[in-house]
Every structure is written in structure tokens, then in C-alpha cells.
Design a protein around this nucleic acid. Structure first.
Lengths: 235, 235
DNA sequence: GTCCCCGCTACACAGCTGTGTAGTAATCTG
DNA sequence: CAGATTACTACACAGCTGTGTAGCGGGGAC
């Protein structure tokens, strides 16, 4: 199951079952869990729709299998990258990139669409991040919120890849596109965007928010003049 | 059939058309455009499903109307907040918060699900951000990528609000939850997470990525031993 | 050989989807 | 008042959805 020394590296991933799973991961990530249909997944894998059910039982079970596979695969990759120190291995990182990209895309999407498995993965990411921040002696009033927001923000880059591609003029799933987003990533994390004074001000404002001046939560500003309300024609 | 428990909001001074639109914005944001059905939207608005069509013509047109409304509304709010300088107005900000939250949630979701209108909004956000960064004299090799990633990351916090709520133990759509994510936000932007040396290293690694050592893009590491491939039973 | 399991396909079924149509009640216009 | 337009509902329809069932072909076990 884990770290099998010999014979584990079988190139027989041509298994129909694996092809279906891969197609499902791709389509789930591309369209979301709901809109991706079993028939389309079967078509993408080049099999009949009945076979999907034969192998996985149901759409929900197929999704669970995709979750389990993607999580296991990503954990392995992380292990290789960090524990085995292959982060500097350029050839390895290059060859790993498309896979990691696909898996991350799927996991993030699955997370957002409410998968229990992927959600627990998010939780552990937040915990790892929190420990990292603590080890870095980062001082924050709410380290968990810090880590959680950090994780959620990273997810955003995967979720918005269509829009990022549009804005950057290059498909972010290609190597060149990925390089640009990575560059942006490094920029974001390498320098502060607001001064300590601004941060203190904002923190104070956030604290004040806990006790609202009145019960204005019920009064909703949205009900005031809306431009598109009183159009009469519908087509 | 009204869902609102204790006269939460939206009294009857709202046009039926507006009630439908609000319900659509809520359900679209909650479930995504695809899975949110016209019948459910109608039920949430307390009308027949035919009336939704009568007022908006089609699901796509309904979505366009939601896009237009939400964008216009958000633009107004931003105008009030920034141009009219009501950012410091605590009562205003407090009353505006739930509305802005809902609209942002919808717009981000609509963006991710491929709305042209909302996508162009993302583009203008990126441009505003880029100009802001330029005005701040931020030095970056790729200011646009910087701004784009920044925007995408902010979207992530909205997209992952379910997971954030889980991890933080508080609904982030409430005032208390919003305060915690805001705190995390400030933390993220107020201090650098990586040193200039690390940043330089990473930038170098990213540059190297542009010219891969071999055509390993075709060779995919994902094809090596996968754990869940050879299970035979499916149910 | 025969048997039987397993990968796999074809087809049927109920439920839900967006959409279309017909008709009724309410409101406005003259 | 009548006449028309609008707000709104009920219902029908084709298409797609996930799921269920029956059956086919081939390869290993006996």
C-alpha cells in the first residue's frame, strides 16, 4: 500500500478502471461534480456508461474513489518532494508537475463541492500550516485563522484558473502559464502589502466588528434602490 | 414554504421579480449555477416555476440579470465606500456587510462557473490591482501576474467558505466568522512569509521552468503504480 | 471439453431538468 | 363600464440524469 520496494511500479495503468478514474478526475475538476455526468465520463474513457457503474457502483462511490486516489497520490508526491528532498531535482519536479496540477485541481474542486474526504484534507493542511507558522515564530492573534485563510487563498488560484488564463493571456495549465502564476505567488508571499500601522488599524477595526453598534444585521442595505427591479419586459 | 425562520429579512416591499432574483443569487452562490434548479429558486422565492421564466425568459437570462444586478450593486457599494469615503463609517460598513457578502459570494461563484460578465469584472479587478501595485512602486518582474494571483487568492476565501467555517468552528458568513477571516487576511498581507533570498531562489527556479530539461511534459509520472487500480469488487 | 467468472455492452426505467402552452386572476387604460 | 395588458399558475413535453437488469464474449479452472 505504501512504499512498496519492488514490483510496485507496474506500467499497467492501462487498466480500464484506471482510465475511467482518470477521466472522472479530469471532468469532475473541469465542470464540477454535479454537471459532470457519468455518460460523459464513460465517453471520455472510451467505455460504456454501464461499465462505470460496474467498476465503481455509483457516482458517489466513483467520487470517493477519485478522492482516495488523488489524496493518496498527492501524499506520495509530497513525501517524495519534502521527505525525500527531491524538491531541487529539476527533472523530477518537471515530470511531476502535470500530474500534481491535475490532482490538485481535482481535490480543490472536490473540496469546494463538499467532499468529506477532501474537506478533512483541507483541515490537515490548515493544521500543518498552523504548525509551520508557529515554528516560524510568527506572532498573530489568531494563528489558525491565519493558516486557514492562507490555505483558502491558495485554493483560489486553482479554482480560478480559467479566469487567470484569460487575464494572463496564457493557459495556466501549461508550463509557461504555471510559471507566471508561480511568479505571482512568490511576489505575494515575499513582501508585505500593508504597513504595520495599517495592519494595527485594520485589526482594531476587526475587533470593533465583534460588537456591532446596533442590531443592524437585520436592516439590510440591499433593499434600497435597485436598478433592475422594475423592468417590466422579460424577453 | 418560506425558509426564513424569524422574519430574517426581505419583507413584502420587494417586487416579486426582485425576490426571485435574490433567491437565484442565493441558490446560485450556494450550489453553483448548474445544480441550482429553476424550480428550487421558484420555491425559495415562494412563486411558481413558470413565473421565473415569465420574468426572466430562461435560466441563462436569469443568470445574466443576476450578474448585472450584483455587479451594479457592488459597484455602487464600492463607490460609497471608497469615493464617498464611508469606509470609516462603522454603522454603514456594518449594515453593508451582509449584502456585500452575498453579492461577492455570488459574483465569485458566477465567475468560476464561466460567466462572461463576471469574468470581465475579474479582469478589471486585476487591472485596478495592477495600477495600485504600480502606484505603490512595488517592484516585480511580472506585475500583472502578481495582481492576478492576488485577486484569485481573494476569490478563494469566498469560494472555500464552507471549509473555512468547518476549520474555524464558526460560520464565516456571520459577523464573528467574518471577523476571523478578516484577521487572517490582514495577517497574510501585513508580513512576508518568505525571505528575499528564498524569493530569489524561487524566482530562479520558476525561470528555469520555462525551458524544461527534456520534453517530459508527455512523460507523465501519474502512470506509475497506483494503489486503487486493481481492486476487483465494485460494490 | 464444460463451466463459470469477469469485463463489458445495450437497453429500460423513473425522476428531474429546462422549456413551452393554455388558462385564470388582477390591474391598468380608455 | 369594456378591453387589454400584465402577473401568475397548472400542466405537458422532450431530453438528460443516475440507476437497474439482462445478456454477450473470452479466458482460466476443473
Amino acid at each position: 500500500m505504501a512504499l512498496d520496494p519492488a514490483g510496485d511500479r507496474a506500467p499497467e495503468d492501462l487498466t480500464t478502471r484506471a482510465r475511467i478514474r482518470d477521466a472522472a478526475i479530469r471532468l469532475f475538476a473541469e465542470r464540477g461534480i454535479g454537471p459532470a455526468t457519468i455518460r460523459d465520463i464513460a465517453k471520455a474513457a472510451g467505455v460504456s456508461s454501464g461499465l462505470v457503474r460496474h467498476h465503481f457502483g455509483s457516482k458517489e462511490a466513483l467520487r470517493d474513489a477519485c478522492d482516495a486516489y488523488a489524496m493518496d497520490r498527492m501524499n506520495r508526491l509530497w513525501e517524495q518532494m519534502f521527505a525525500e528532498g527531491r524538491l531541487a531535482d529539476q527533472a523530477f519536479m518537471g515530470s511531476v508537475h502535470p500530474t500534481a496540477m491535475r490532482l490538485q485541481n481535482y481535490l480543490v474542486r472536490s473540496m469546494m463541492d463538499g467532499s468529506d474526504a477532501a474537506s478533512s484534507m483541507f483541515e490537515s493542511m490548515v493544521e500543518v500550516g498552523e504548525q509551520f507558522l508557529a515554528a516560524q515564530k510568527v506572532e498573530s492573534a489568531d494563528l489558525r485563522a491565519y493558516s486557514a485563510v492562507l490555505c483558502a487563498m491558495q485554493m483560489g488560484v486553482f479554482l480560478m484558473h480559467d479566469q487567470l488564463s484569460r487575464v494572463l493571456g496564457v493557459d495556466v495549465r501549461t508550463r509557461a502559464g504555471y510559471a507566471r502564476t508561480s511568479s505571482g505567488f512568490v511576489d505575494v508571499f515575499s513582501r508585505p502589502l500593508i504597513t504595520p500601522e495599517q495592519a494595527a488599524q485594520l485589526h482594531a477595526a476587526v475587533d470593533r466588528m465583534h460588537v456591532p453598534p446596533s442590531d443592524s444585521d437585520a436592516q439590510d442595505v440591499a433593499t434600497e434602490g435597485a436598478v433592475h427591479d422594475d423592468r417590466r419586459d422579460s424577453r
